[in-house]
Simulated scan of single mutants.
Amino acid sequence: MLPLDKDGVAYDEGSERASSVEDYKVTCMQFIKDISHDYLAWVDYYKLPVDEDKFRRDRINAIVERTNDWIAKVATTIKAVDVVMNDGIQKMAENTAGYPFQMGVFVNNTSDYTLAKPGIIEINVKAVGREGCKVKLGWHQKEKRFLLSSTTPVIIDEASMPEQDFDTLDLHLKMDAQKCQSRDVISFTVVVAETKEGKEQDRRGLTTIIHVS
C-alpha cells in the first residue's frame, strides 16, 4: 500500500502526485472490473451449455483486461478514458448476450481493438445467417444507424447503404476521420439483423474501438 498524503491521495516520495486524468483512469479501471461481475452473473442466469458458458466468460474477462490496458496506455484525456470505458461496457453487454449467427467488423483486417491513421478509414462488416436465414445491416436506434463515440467528431458515410438482406453480408463502409489526430480514440457499434422470409428475427451489435496513430 502506498502512503496517503493529507488529501487522501496515494503517492510515493519519488514521484509527482497523480494528475486528475491518472486518478480518473484508476477509478474507471476499477469500475470496469466491478461491472464485469454483473455481466458474469447474467451468464450464470442463462444456464448455458458448458462450452458456450465458458466462451462468454472468457470473452468478458478478456474485455476487462484489454479495456483496462487501453485506459492505462492509450487514453490521454478524460474524454478518451470515457470513450474506452464505455466501449468496454458495450462489448461486455454484447458478449453476455452472445452471437447466435456469425458476424465480424474489421478495420485494417483487425477486430475489436484496432489501429488506423487519420483520414478515411475503411470498415469491413461481414455476417452469415443461420440455416434458412439471411442478414442485413441494421439500425442501432430508429433514426440512428450507428452508435458513435470519439474524442474528435467522426462520421460514417451512409450514402447508398443497402437495405436488402443477403445470404452473406460483406459490406465496406467509410468513416471520415480526417479531423482526428494521433492518440484520438473512436468507438463505434454496427448492428446486423438476421431475417427469415423477409422478417427480422434476431439482431446483434458489435462494437469496435480504433486507436488513431
Score class of each variant (00 low, 15 high):
residue 2 L to S: 10
residue 9 V to H: 12
residue 14 G to F: 14
residue 15 S to F: 14
residue 15 S to I: 03
residue 15 S to D: 09
residue 19 S to V: 08
residue 22 E to F: 07
residue 22 E to V: 11
residue 22 E to G: 06
residue 23 D to R: 05
residue 26 V to M: 00
residue 31 F to K: 07
residue 39 Y to D: 10
residue 40 L to R: 11
residue 45 Y to H: 11
residue 46 Y to A: 13
residue 48 L to I: 07
residue 48 L to W: 02
residue 51 D to E: 15
residue 53 D to M: 12
residue 54 K to T: 14
residue 57 R to E: 09
residue 57 R to Y: 05
residue 60 I to Q: 01
residue 66 R to A: 10
residue 68 N to V: 05
residue 81 V to W: 03
residue 81 V to L: 12
residue 81 V to R: 10
residue 83 V to T: 04
residue 83 V to E: 08
residue 84 V to F: 09
residue 85 M to S: 10
residue 87 D to T: 07
residue 89 I to V: 15
residue 95 N to I: 02
residue 96 T to V: 15
residue 98 G to D: 08
residue 100 P to C: 12
residue 102 Q to D: 07
residue 102 Q to G: 03
residue 106 F to T: 11
residue 108 N to I: 02
residue 109 N to L: 12
residue 110 T to R: 13
residue 116 A to P: 03
residue 117 K to H: 13
residue 118 P to G: 07
residue 121 I to E: 01
residue 121 I to G: 01
residue 122 E to V: 13
residue 124 N to T: 13
residue 125 V to S: 12
residue 131 E to G: 02
residue 135 V to I: 08
residue 135 V to P: 04
residue 138 G to K: 00
residue 139 W to E: 12
residue 146 F to V: 01
residue 147 L to G: 05
residue 148 L to R: 06
residue 148 L to K: 10
residue 152 T to W: 00
residue 154 V to I: 15
residue 154 V to N: 05
residue 155 I to W: 12
residue 158 E to M: 09
residue 159 A to P: 01
residue 167 D to Y: 12
residue 170 D to T: 00
residue 173 L to T: 13
residue 174 K to P: 00
residue 193 A to W: 01
residue 197 E to Y: 08
residue 198 G to R: 05
residue 199 K to N: 14
residue 200 E to R: 10
residue 206 L to T: 00
residue 209 I to G: 01
residue 210 I to Y: 06
